[in-house]
Design a protein around this nucleic acid. Sequence first.
DNA 1: GCAGTAATTAGACCGACCGTCTATAAATGT
DNA 2: ACATTTATAGACGGTCGGTCTAATTACTGC
Lengths: 211, 211
Amino acid sequence: MIYADKKNHRPGRPSKERAGYSETREILLRAGMEVLTEKGFSSAGIDEILRRVGVPKGSFYHFFGSKESFGAELIGLYSAYFANKLDRFLLDITLPPLQRIRAFTDYARSGMAHHNYKRGCLAGNLGQEMGALPESFREQLKAVFQDWQSRFAACLEEAKEVGDISADADCQQLAATFWIGWEGAILRAKLEGSPYPLDLYADFFLSGLPR
Amino acid sequence: MIYADKKNHRPGRPSKERAGYSETREILLRAGMEVLTEKGFSSAGIDEILRRVGVPKGSFYHFFGSKESFGAELIGLYSAYFANKLDRFLLDITLPPLQRIRAFTDYARSGMAHHNYKRGCLAGNLGQEMGALPESFREQLKAVFQDWQSRFAACLEEAKEVGDISADADCQQLAATFWIGWEGAILRAKLEGSPYPLDLYADFFLSGLPR
DNA sequence: GCAGTAATTAGACCGACCGTCTATAAATGT
DNA sequence: ACATTTATAGACGGTCGGTCTAATTACTGC
């Protein structure tokens, strides 16, 4: 549980050395990330997030214009954080390309286990919710998947160069397919409370790649 | 838009010939299905459903004990309705097994297009929402997927008998994989407002089956 | 055909939540 | 010192979800 010491949230202008940085703001983003990866956007209450970290509402609306813009910022943070994680695996030249993909899915697997299969993918959560979300999220979420897909496709291109997948494979398309199904696997892993869906899908995807 | 004539919703005990049947009840279930397939459970408002069909709130809580039990009934209805649709395709002996699967995905594809990619799969929606849902839904949803999976596996078994997939394929496992990824495809189709994710995944799945 | 009961609608009510707004507190700048 | 900037404090209005009681209509038995 993340929460800040009471004395970190007291009124008044912050001291000068902390200019441009606010711990409270970061705490709110952190807590928001936790809640939104678990419950999505619509079901997540500002009040709940605030209670969790002992920050009063005034602070929230000081730092963020609205719940919507808070969500947009979270999507941006999550996207970047995750892209980074992806690169760490998919660009790992100590492994052959397809094993990097496996390393990534294993990592995700253990991440879900670590949170008891309660937290999913923020982008997947909000994507599913689009029917009830501000339309402004749609393009942002599409761009997130496009970004991840490109990184994934680059790894598949390497696999192609190495000859691990067939020379006429459409890597962008395969990468798109991976994410389409992978989000489904996360969804089911959350529902079942088990890594099995992740394993099943990762195995199927990797063994289904054109040779 | 479904709504009932005002005069169909007036107070008082209903006439005898309609014993055991309530049009209002069915109208509520229908409207609920529409809203929940679009927005999921948490974001769906009782008031919104009621307004949509011009039924007062008292009726809702007369027929359904709570929003939760309303949702449970909808899951049951959806599951049965969908199992039926599945059988219509997967047991269609006029087609070879794998073509039946293709026929099903094509049907789903046109269904999503017909609703402008706004409505998804009720089970998928609620599965994704589990983090914010009554825990009682979990087992019910797991059972729904298990049911669909069994029907799908039976079709794959037929494909095995015909020799369209390899003799040592694990059909239950393949069927599980199909649904895992298929829900992801529906999610993405909703987000992108396009049938492309469905096509991509269906193609990959069918061509990835062990021969 | 009247009293009592059953089925349904009507909508008031309470609490929760989002977003706003005013007041206050602490640090800075002049 | 005094005004200004930055942030916290939390009350408030409007809306919505879920529950509950009252009112309304039909049926049942006598």
